[in-house]
Simulated scan of single mutants.
Amino acid sequence: MGKSILTVDDSASIRQMVSFTLKAAGYSVTEASDGVQGLDKAKTGHYDLILTDQNMPNMDGLTLIRQLRTLPAYRSVPILVLTTEAGDTMKMQGKAAGATGWLVKPFDPQKLIDVVKRVIG
């Protein structure tokens, strides 16, 4: 199996689209419905990439990124934010929190695959 990706989004339809797109490209995908569940899954598994939404209940994406960056296993793992937030201020906050990159919804499946390949191969 290919590289392992954790996708965190409160929208089931977005999670399904992301999973379908990435699995079709040969990646192994695990889904989480919010930042709390994403953090739990990250602590119990190992992922080559984490893809997270920003606006979610329980724990937002930036908080999730900050929490992940405190864990030795995720200090250098790429984290991409996939969100409807397109403002420069939010992107700068993402970069400050430790995000590797920023993608805006709705996403183009081929662009998502291209970015993932560039980040983790």
Rank of each mutant, 00 (worst) to 15 (best):
Thr52Trp: 05
Asp10Ala: 11
Asp10Phe: 09
Gly45Pro: 09
Ser4Glu: 11
Gly87Ser: 15
Lys117Leu: 09
Gln37Arg: 11
Val116Ser: 03
Lys117Phe: 08
Asp48Gly: 13
Gly35Glu: 11
Thr7Gly: 02
Ala12Trp: 01
Lys117Gly: 10
Leu6Ser: 01
Asp9Phe: 08
Gln67Ser: 15
Val81Ala: 10
Tyr27Gln: 04
Arg118Gly: 15
His46Phe: 12
Ser19Gly: 12
Gln67Gly: 11
Gly121Leu: 05
Met56Asp: 08
Leu103Pro: 06
Gly2Thr: 10
Asp60Met: 05
Lys105Ala: 11
Ser19Asn: 08
Gln67Met: 13
Thr30Val: 15
Tyr74Arg: 06
Lys105Pro: 09
Ala97Ile: 05
Ala97Phe: 02
Gly2Met: 06
Leu22Ile: 01
Gln93Ser: 14
Val104Met: 07
Met17His: 04
Asp48Asn: 14
Leu49Pro: 08
Lys91Tyr: 04
Val36Asp: 10
Asp34Gln: 09
Ile113Arg: 03
Thr84Val: 14
Val77Asn: 12
Pro106Thr: 06
Gly26Val: 02
Pro106Leu: 08
Leu64Asn: 07
Thr70Val: 12
Thr44Val: 13
Ser76Met: 03
Arg75Met: 12
Trp102Ala: 08
Gly45Ile: 04
Pro78Met: 04
Leu51Arg: 00
Phe20Gly: 00
Val104Cys: 10
Lys43Ser: 14
Ser28Ala: 15
Ile14Ser: 06
Val104Lys: 02
Val81Phe: 07
Val77Lys: 08
Leu68Val: 08
Asp53Gln: 08
Val36Cys: 11
Arg15His: 06
Thr63Ser: 15
Met1Thr: 12
Lys117Cys: 09
Leu112Arg: 00
Ser13Ala: 12
Asp9Lys: 01
Lys43Met: 12
Thr21Leu: 03
Tyr47Pro: 05
Val104Phe: 08
Leu64Arg: 04
Gly87Arg: 07
Arg69Glu: 09
Asp60Thr: 05
Ser11Asp: 13
Asp34Ser: 11
Asp10Asn: 14
Val116Met: 04
Asp60Asn: 15
Leu82Val: 12
Asp114Phe: 04
Ala73Trp: 00
Thr7Met: 03
Asp88Gly: 14
Tyr27Cys: 09
Arg15Gly: 05
Leu82His: 04
Gly101Gln: 09
Ser13Val: 09
Glu85Met: 13
Gly61Gln: 06
Thr63Asp: 15
Val116Cys: 02
Arg118Met: 13
Gln110Trp: 01
Ala99Tyr: 01
Ser13His: 07
Lys91Glu: 08
Met59Trp: 00
Val104His: 03
Ala42Gln: 02
Arg66Thr: 15
Ala86Gly: 10
Asp9Ile: 02
Pro106Arg: 05
Asn55Cys: 14
Met90Phe: 06
Thr30Trp: 09
Gly35Ser: 10
Ser11Leu: 10
Ile65Tyr: 03
